[in-house]
């Protein structure tokens, strides 16, 4: 299992897409936003927070969605399409361990990327750490689990690597839009805000923003993520084929 995980990790780094989109891109977005004076003004309509304060949780959810929807499904569906998983079924290790190794890598990368975003925001742009750290960690873990479950569902439904990429993107863009990447949830029209709350991404961002301002995340947001995690994981387990 250790050799398998290390070799899968090496392939992940060699492939470059995962580190670039999961770690590099969110960091670049943070640096761009952080250098725009407009994002660093305190605003009354955001309860005295700056736009950057609001954007850090959005970027964190963006990291999780990117890895879960754009990186993980393509790798798994590609492995199935190429017969990598089929070949492993004839060995004592079996393909389930590859799935486990990929999940470990996804969560590890997410942890590295989230930490980098938080530290950079704090050190370079003075964005405070979440004032409710336990609630923040709980929210991040739940969001990662919910989005990864959706990613596994994409991998299960897609016939191959390319299709997984296409489906993953088709889920990713509406999801990050509803998570407030282009328009913060607070400034959305009421209808859109309600739709947003029902998605794992919207719930995650709302809950994280609660913890940023020192509150315990709203239970409705937590339940929404738990439901998505359970539902998507069950559907993925039902649909998933090793070959």
């Amino acid at each position: 299992m250790t050799t398998l995980t290390l070799i899968e990790l090496r392939l992940f780094l060699r492939e470059k897409a995962g580190p670039a989109f999961g770690v590099g891109l969110p960091l670049i977005l943070l640096i761009i936003f952080g250098n725009l004076p407009f994002y660093r003004e305190r605003r009354d309509d955001l309860g005295g927070l700056t736009l950057l304060d609001v954007y850090v949780p959005i970027l964190i959810a963006f990291v999780l969605a990117m890895l879960a929807l754009n990186v993980l499904p393509a790798v798994l569906a590609g492995y199935r399409e190429k017969g990598v998983l089929r070949r492993l079924r004839t060995t004592p290790v079996g393909p389930a361990r590859v799935l486990a190794a990929q999940l470990i890598i996804t969560l590890l990368t997410a942890a590295v990327s989230v930490t980098t975003v938080l530290l950079t925001a704090r050190l370079a742009y003075g964005v405070a750490f979440p004032r409710q750290p336990a609630g923040f960690v709980l929210t991040t873990v739940l969001a990662a689990v919910a989005l990864t479950a959706v990613g596994l569902l994409v991998a299960a439904a897609a016939p191959g690597g390319r299709a997984a990429n296409a489906i993953g993107s088709a889920v990713f863009y509406p999801m990050v839009f509803l998570g407030g990447l282009f328009l913060p949830i607070q400034t959305m029209p009421a209808v859109l805000r309600h739709v947003s709350q029902a998605t794992p991404m919207g719930a995650a961002v709302t809950a994280m923003q609660d913890t940023t301002s020192g509150h315990w995340p709203h239970w409705l947001a937590l339940i929404t993520m738990v439901l998505w995690a359970g539902g998507a994981a069950l559907a993925a387990a039902k649909l998933f084929r090793w070959e």
Binding site: L4, R14, K82
Partner: peptide
């Protein structure tokens, strides 16, 4: 040895051998 069982594109020969060695 399967007719269509393949390996990841970027996996090197030495790594494939080491990986499969670790299974047994």
């Amino acid at each position: 040895q399967l007719q269509d069982g393949q390996l990841p594109d970027r996996l090197r020969v030495g790594e494939a051998m080491r990986l499969y060695q670790s299974f047994y």
